[in-house]
Amino acid sequence: MAKMTVGLSTSSIDKLTSVGVILSGAAADDMEVDLFVLVNAGHAFLKNKAENISAMSEDIQTSEEFKASLEKVSSPSWLEFFEMAKELTEVKIHICSLAGKIAGGEKMEDFIDIVDDICGIGEYIESIQNTDINIFI
């Protein structure tokens, strides 16, 4: 099984959606995915915040326009993409402890159910040393 490692460092809804689409493709291809939530990405995985993410990385659209565009083409939300990918293939979501703390979460119960564990940067480095595809967003 080929492996993909994703370093995710943003909580912007457009980039989260991009990662969700990539995870879907990896799932269809039966890839194993290690996704590391780094620095600013912790916010998106907090309980009570994940479904209300509205930051955008670019001002080409507002988040409301972006969400409307997705709905128009019946596209799942970023969170639904992540959940589907986890159902279809082995996707592990690791919260870097620093990212968790920046967002205000320190324990597993602070995060949504799709999160698998809280880790240190060493695990990310080990993963990218032993992966087939390495993506940083």
């Binding site: 689409v21 879907s24 493709g25 799932a27 269809a28 083409v73 019946s74 596209s75 799942p76 589907m84 279809l88």
Partner: peptide, 14 residues
């Protein structure tokens, strides 16, 4: 038919 990429691919996979 109601879904955009990657919806059909995921539907096929399932």
């Amino acid at each position: 038919r109601g879904t955009a990429c990657p919806g059909p691919l995921l539907a096929a996979k399932k």
